[in-house]
């Protein structure tokens, strides 16, 4: 898979019809194709490669999404009285755990994250420690933001923090998986020309969708309908998970339909 990634990078470069690219030089040299056929060939090749990447993304997203469903369904089988509203925190932790584990596993296997230069144990360890620290900081950050947005400060602090943990697992963990513990890169990604691969673009989309979902989830809270899902933080966590799932679906689709406009600069 990681070789696929490298290929993909090459084809990203080739999209701008770089003179030095293998494809170009190979077919230029042979001279057996006219210019037009060459472009068509490259384009077809390009689409195949794109499809390859998008397929990988779609399948990984499908795995992650199914893990969310499993995290909802499986505990209901094993635990008496489990429900999304009734034992909300339990559901929240189960989704958090499932998403975290599956995300880490998928991205590890796919090898999306930047190849590390050093391979020593100490370096790996420091990366791990830094990742954990970032996760913790991100939990605290989300907690603060949610409180500033109007969540109760002292009562139901556990619920608020659980929501922060969920948001962390949906957004920060994914950042960590794709970009590594590198805050500058995280900040860089969330700008118009910041994405450097389809995975970055999908990261943009899923993170934005989860956060917007959580934001929209706050809307029904003041209504006087007295529904179980209006209790804090059920609507927000539901909103963020639904947003995340939407992001998982939308990201490959959006990339597929905008593949002609997408150009990635390499570093």
């Amino acid at each position: 898979m990681s070789s696929g990634n490298a290929w993909f990078r090459n084809y990203c470069l080739r999209k701008s019809l770089n003179e030095n690219s293998q494809c170009t030089s190979a077919y230029r040299k042979s001279g057996s194709f006219s210019n037009l056929t060459f472009v068509a060939f490259c384009y077809a090749y390009f689409i195949i490669m794109w499809d390859h990447e998008i397929k990988a993304m779609a399948s990984s997203h499908a795995i992650i999404a199914s893990s969310v469903f499993m995290a909802t369904v499986l505990p209901a089988v094993f635990i008496q009285g489990f429900s999304v509203y009734g034992t909300h925190l339990l559901w929240l932790y189960s989704v958090t755990g499932a998403v975290s584990v599956v995300n880490i596993a998928v991205f590890w296997l796919l090898g999306i994250s930047q190849p590390t230069k050093k391979n020593t144990l100490g370096y790996k360890l420091s990366r791990l420690v830094r990742s954990c620290m970032y996760l913790l900081l991100s939990c605290l950050f989300y907690h603060t933001v949610v409180v500033l947005y109007g969540a109760p400060l002292i009562e139901s602090a556990l619920e608020t923090f659980s929501l922060a943990v969920l948001l962390t697992s949906l957004t920060t963990l994914r950042c960590l998986c794709v970009l590594g513990p590198n805050v500058q890169a995280w900040i860089r990604v969330f700008s118009r020309h910041g994405a450097m691969s389809v995975w970055d673009t999908s990261l943009q989309i899923t993170v934005a969708c989860s956060l917007i979902g959580a934001w929209l989830g706050a809307f029904p809270i003041p209504l006087d309908w007295d529904r179980p899902w209006q209790v804090w933080p059920v609507s927000c966590s539901l909103g963020s998970v639904v947003g995340y799932l939407t992001g998982l679906v939308v990201a490959p689709a959006w990339i597929h339909f905008h593949r002609k406009q997408l150009t990635y600069k390499s570093k």
């Binding site: 500033l148 947005y149 003041p222 209504l223 006087d224």
Partner: peptide, 16 residues
Amino acid sequence: DSYVIAEGRVVTFLLL
């Protein structure tokens, strides 16, 4: 009516 009743918080939320 619920939003009008909670207007103070709603406005702050939107402002933020």
